[in-house]
Every structure is written in structure tokens, then in C-alpha cells.
Design a protein around this nucleic acid. Structure first.
Lengths: 151, 151
DNA sequence: GCTCGATTTAGACAATGTCAATACTTGGTC
DNA sequence: GACCAAGTATTGACATTGTCTAAATCGAGC
């Protein structure tokens, strides 16, 4: 362990948490490093498995703790996509929605047009104070029989 | 057990499954009868508890089986609302979306205006064949600090 | 009231997530 | 470099939600 990883190019999420002065540890780095790129939508279990390739002894609780912290800080979005476990999305910079394959669970980011007008009337609000809107387009991805063929 | 419940006024869901010739049993009736009215959004556990008031020996597996059958038949909608368990919605007749309280999980049906135009461009479809859209408005209900006051 | 196939049941199991107590590590300080 | 305090990680038990199987039971038509 004499090689100090000094000038590695930090991916987005890693850079952001670094800037916040978030206390770093080998475990947190292993988790954060899984999210390279913007269009990653992994489940906690997938994140655990990938993090273990760097750091085999990392525990499940640590991954959940770290993810919860990141969500709390607003650096990660937790997306509950129908069935199955939550997925985590590092693309918090640009508001977007999701396109989900109902068969394999794959998730894509989408930014549909004409959504600015999406509002509820006072009657429809039922006294709620609105915080946000989640839109999930359901469909079949190309691999699962999407636009290619029927049945 | 000599009183035959002959001309009870059947609520919607009960009527509908009856019409389909779905084989009825005390257990299925207990589950179906929980869904009186349109604006009911219960979790499997709540359904189990309510059904047990009619039929104390009904098992969890039966409730899940029955719910899965009803969803399969299209008589019930399964709504995954963020955290927590799925909720079941008997309002399948009119397409609608949901308004969810992020604190207590309460769910309301809403039919927002100006949604007919909601579409994805070919590029955004990523080869998916679109099946439907789920929209969930997130907020705080009146009881949890909605329109009344801040903090 | 029989009979057959559909339905229900208990309980084990699986997947996902949470928690508490203890041990360890990090970063600051001398 | 060693120490300390606070923060962080770990193990393993637990909770919740849901699924499965084999055996028992029931419903509805005859």
C-alpha cells in the first residue's frame, strides 16, 4: 500500500462530495466510485457487488449507510421503479424523469417536452403542499421486445 | 351459518369479479369486500387485517394470491408509491394518477389537465415500446403539514 | 352428497432494508 | 510519530414485504 492515488481524475459524484468536505474513507470511496458517469441506475445490491471488487470486505450496512447519506445530502436520487429494489441515480443536476422496462427493470433518463404546465388545481391538491413530481414511462426496452417485434 | 347473504348491494369490484364468473370463496369475498368505494389505496397488510375481521383464519398467502389474480385480471391496480409496500387501487375504470404524502404515505387519485400531450420523441424512446405512464405528485398532506403551515 | 379441480393453508424461505453495540479509522494536535 | 475524540464501519440479528410448496380443504355441478 505505498502507492498514493494522488491525481486520479475524479468523476462527478466523487468530486462533488469531496468539495463538500465530506469525510472520506476507503469504503465511501468504493461506493462513490461506482457512480462514474451520469446515466447509471444501480440497485443497492449491485452497488455492493461492484464496491466489493475494490474492497472485498465492505459490508452491506456500510453501503446502505453511505447511500442514505448521499441521498440526504441531495447528491443521489433514490428511484423506486415499480417492482424490485430502489435504484440510485447520480444525475441530480438536471431535473429529469424515467423510462423503465417493465420486464428487465432497465432505467433510462428522459426529459419530456411540454411538462412545464403540469399542475394541479386547488381542488385536486386536497390540501397537500406539492414538493415534486415523479414521472415514470413504462414500456419494453429493445432487448425485451420493444420497438422491434410483437409478442 | 344459516343466513344466506342474498341481496347485499355489491360494491363495484365485487360486482365486476362476479360478472366475470370468477369462482367465489369466503376468502376471496373477504378480500374483495375490503375494496368498497373507488378511492381506497390499501397495502397488502392492511387488506389482510381488514379481511381478518370478517374471516379471522384467512392466510397471508391467500391475500397475496387473490390480489395477484385481481391485478392479473385488470380489476385492481398495483401502485408502488416510493418507500413502503405496494398499494392496491380498485379504480381501474378511469385513468388517473396519484398524489402521495411523503410523510404518511397517504394516496389520492388525481386527474391533472393538459396531459394528453405527454409524449416522448423517438430519440427519447431509446427503442422502447411505450406501455403507459405513471405520474406521482409528491407532497405533504394537510395532516402532515401541507397547505396549513411551514416547518 | 360425490367428485374433481380449484383454492387455501401453514410455514419455510427469499429479498430488501434497518438497527445497535462494538471496534476501528480518520484527521487534528502535540 | 503517537494520542485523542469523534466519526465511521462491521457483524449479525432483526423487521418488513413478498413468494413458494405440499398437503388439506372447499365449491359447484351433477
Amino acid at each position: 500500500m505505498t502507492s498514493a492515488p494522488a491525481h486520479v481524475e475524479l468523476p462527478d459524484l466523487a468530486l462533488r462530495v469531496r468539495r463538500r468536505g465530506w469525510r472520506m474513507s476507503a469504503q465511501r470511496r468504493a461506493v462513490v466510485d461506482v457512480f462514474t458517469g451520469e446515466h447509471v441506475h444501480l440497485t443497492a445490491d449491485e452497488i455492493l457487488l461492484q464496491a466489493r471488487q475494490d474492497l472485498p470486505e465492505i459490508s452491506r450496512a456500510t453501503v446502505y449507510n453511505t447511500l442514505a447519506d448521499l441521498v440526504e445530502m441531495g447528491e443521489l436520487l433514490a428511484v423506486s421503479a415499480g417492482d424490485g429494489p430502489k435504484r440510485y441515480d447520480p444525475n441530480v443536476a438536471r431535473p429529469h424523469h424515467h423510462l423503465m422496462c417493465t420486464r428487465c427493470g432497465e432505467l433510462k433518463d428522459v426529459v419530456p417536452e411540454g411538462l412545464e404546465a403540469l399542475n394541479l388545481s386547488a381542488a385536486e391538491l386536497h390540501g397537500y403542499r406539492l414538493v415534486g413530481v415523479d414521472i415514470t414511462f413504462r414500456g419494453l426496452c429493445a432487448d425485451c421486445g420493444g420497438s422491434a417485434h410483437d409478442t
